[in-house]
């Protein structure tokens, strides 16, 4: 499923260098588990986001391997240490090969 996928992230606009901030991310995605059957009894094939990563200026913050047991519209909340101004890159990898990315810049101060 590649339609209607909309990634959203919540990042503070400005930070004090060295501060630990909480990031929240959500992506709208069906996360079809491959266990469900349609009304004719056929198995609906698996289609999920299998990996999520968050980087800050090329340095990794978190790398999550996801399995079908992650709920529809995968949500993650985690902490990052920000050394200064820069850009967060959030990346989601879909089973069908699609990659969704969001960049969020933070200011120091």
């Amino acid at each position: 499923m590649a339609s209607g996928v909309k990634p959203r992230v919540k990042v503070p606009g400005s930070v004090t260098p060295g501060e630990v901030i909480t990031l929240k991310t959500l992506i709208s995605h069906d996360m079809e588990s491959g266990q469900r059957k349609d009304k004719d009894g056929n198995l609906i094939p698996r289609s999920i986001i299998n990996r999520f990563t968050c980087d800050f200026e090329g340095e990794n913050v978190i790398d999550v391997t996801m399995e079908p047991a992650i709920s529809t519209n995968p949500y993650f909340e985690f902490d990052a240490k920000v050394p200064g101004a820069g850009t967060f890159t959030f990346t989601w990898y879909d089973d069908d090969g699609d990659v969704y990315t969001i960049d969020k810049a933070v200011k120091a101060g």
Binding site: T22, D55, N60, D63, E67, I70, K81, P83
Partner: peptide
């Protein structure tokens, strides 16, 4: 399996 979280150098 549910998920594997790997923490990088900038994890708070």
């Amino acid at each position: 399996d549910v998920a594997t979280f790997k923490f990088g150098p900038l994890a708070g």
